[in-house]
């Protein structure tokens, strides 16, 4: 009986319109919240303190070892970067233990890291050399051709298999961009030009399947550099410059090695 009454039908229609408007409101709310939050979700950043255990790395002039300084700097990076809710920062080693390059790459790849930074110090026979160097993986022609050959073969097109030694190749251009951003940010922090990022055949980076760089934070053969890196205030400024360029890189590229979409 009542469906025939026009006022009830109109009320039902009004209710339908209200639900529609309510859903639209929720959708807009979610979208604006996403935009306001900068489309954030925790990006996984793996920090790798170089050397460790019986592998001392460089022996500095003041008696300190590179492995210890690398861990100190990486912990500071973790502390500063973790303050940003968009970043989840993990270390490949949290104490003084030896890890092979392969084990470090395995950790990053198993965690589906979005970013990998290996922390090291530099050595130079010229004691006056100072500053920092950012390295990225520079593929050779032969590696590029074997990678493209592999990609063009039918069996690998679907499953996207990449050999262990060529894991970095898909991310190599992004790694170069990350290295440039880091170098620029650190140049600004130091207030002077301190070189350009350097592409090399780095064994560790070649096996990491996400944008990856290696930073030599200071020259341990320079006493002033060594003193500076032991200063917590300097390390904080260094870590903040790294954090800013990482965030800049991640939000620009919207890069996700794990396939998650922000």
């Amino acid at each position: 009986m009542f469906p025939d009454r026009p006022e009830i039908v109109a009320r039902h229609r009004r209710r339908g319109a209200g639900a529609y408007r309510y859903s639209l409101f929720l959708l807009l709310l979610w979208l604006s919240a996403s935009l306001l939050m900068g489309q954030r979700y925790p990006w996984i950043v793996v920090m790798d303190p170089g050397h460790g255990g019986d592998d001392y790395g460089i022996r500095a002039g003041q008696g300190s070892f590179e492995k210890d300084i690398n861990l100190l700097v990486a912990r500071d990076f973790q502390h500063i970067l973790s303050a940003d809710p968009a970043l989840d920062v993990l270390l490949t080693r949290e104490n003084d233990r030896e890890l092979s390059l392969r084990e470090r790459a395995i950790q990053a790849n198993n965690l589906s890291a979005d970013l990998f930074i290996s922390v090291h110090c530099a050595f130079s026979n010229r004691r006056v050399d100072r500053g920092f160097i950012v390295y990225f993986f520079q593929p050779e022609e032969s590696q590029l051709s074997s990678f493209h050959e592999l990609r063009s073969t039918g069996s690998h097109q679907d499953v996207r298999l990449v050999p262990w030694d060529l894991a970095q190749l898909p991310a190599a251009p992004a790694s170069r961009d990350l290295a440039t951003r880091l170098q620029n940010a650190l140049n600004r922090m130091h207030g002077k030009y301190s070189g350009s990022p350097v592409g090399e055949q780095l064994e560790l980076l070649s096996k990491v399947a996400c944008p990856a760089v290696l930073i030599e934070c200071c020259f341990l053969t320079n006493s002033e550099d060594e003193r500076q890196i032991m200063d917590p205030f300097y390390r904080r400024r260094f870590a903040e410059a790294v954090r800013d360029s990482i965030m800049d890189f991640l939000t620009t590229h919207q890069y996700s090695a794990s396939g998650r979409q922000p």
């Binding site: 460089i58 530099a122 050595f123 130079s124 026979n125 390295y135 090399e200 290696l214 030599e216």
Partner: peptide
């Protein structure tokens, strides 16, 4: 070897 990328190169 003293270490470091530069000296290795």
């Amino acid at each position: 070897h003293p270490g470091g990328v530069l000296e290795e190169l």
